[in-house]
Computed example of a mutant assay.
Amino acid sequence: MLDRLFNAAALWTALGLLSGFYWREITKFSGFEDRSETMLATAHTHALSLGTLVLLAVLALAKTFGIAEKSGRLFVTLWHVGLGLTFGAMVVKGTLQVLGVPLAESAMWAGIGGLGHMVITGTLVYFFVILRRALKTTDATATLPATVEP
């Protein structure tokens, strides 16, 4: 589980850095004037904050409190789904905006991004449930009397 969290954080770091580079280069190459007016402008910060920072915090909490393997795997999977939908919609819509494709203005992109945000929200609630369970388990083992070896 800890390896999975570490690898996931590293993956989102790479995606965040690459999408920032992509945003800079595609807007420069296409001569797009107002770079901050596209969804590409915030895609890399979503990947870095929600992908890298959140998953590193979860990694530290999982290491500290011994979060269960099964629930931890489900959390990571759901987090990837939610963040993937959000990030993917932002990158595609932003690219279409830069290229001037009318499909960029479709409400579909807001729907996909909104769905991703809803999955992320639900997954965050699920993580608090997992964390509460791990804290109770940690509290229970901390209050057990020490055994004396003969």
Rank of each mutant, 00 (worst) to 15 (best):
L2C: 05
L2R: 10
D3S: 05
L5K: 14
F6C: 10
N7M: 03
N7S: 08
N7W: 05
A9L: 06
L11I: 09
L11P: 04
W12P: 01
T13E: 05
A14L: 07
A14D: 05
A14W: 06
L15P: 02
L15T: 01
L18V: 11
S19Q: 00
G20D: 10
F21I: 12
F21K: 12
W23G: 00
R24N: 00
I26E: 07
S30R: 07
G31Y: 06
E33K: 15
E33G: 13
D34I: 13
D34S: 14
D34P: 09
S36D: 14
S36Q: 10
E37A: 11
T38G: 03
T38D: 01
M39I: 00
T42I: 07
T42S: 04
H44R: 02
T45S: 04
H46L: 07
S49W: 07
T52L: 03
L53H: 10
L55Y: 09
L55K: 01
L59W: 15
A60S: 11
A62R: 14
K63H: 14
F65W: 12
F65Y: 14
F65D: 13
G66C: 08
A68S: 13
A68N: 07
A68P: 05
E69R: 07
E69C: 07
E69P: 03
S71F: 05
S71Q: 14
R73P: 10
L74C: 01
F75T: 11
F75Y: 07
F75M: 07
V76W: 08
T77P: 04
H80T: 08
V81H: 00
V81W: 12
L83A: 07
G84Y: 10
L85S: 09
T86D: 11
T86L: 15
F87Y: 03
M90K: 07
V91M: 10
V92F: 14
V92T: 12
K93G: 01
K93T: 02
T95Y: 08
Q97R: 09
V98Q: 04
L99N: 06
L99F: 13
A107V: 08
M108G: 05
W109Q: 13
G111R: 09
G111A: 01
I112M: 11
I112Q: 01
G114K: 01
L115I: 13
H117N: 13
H117P: 03
V119A: 08
V119Y: 14
V119D: 13
I120N: 03
I120A: 02
I120G: 05
T123F: 15
L124P: 13
L124F: 14
L124W: 15
V125C: 06
V125P: 08
V125T: 14
V125Y: 15
V125E: 15
F127E: 05
F128V: 09
I130H: 11
I130T: 15
L131G: 03
L131K: 03
L131Y: 08
R132Q: 15
L135I: 06
T138H: 15
D139R: 04
A142E: 04
T143Y: 10
T143Q: 04
T143S: 10
P145V: 04
E149I: 03
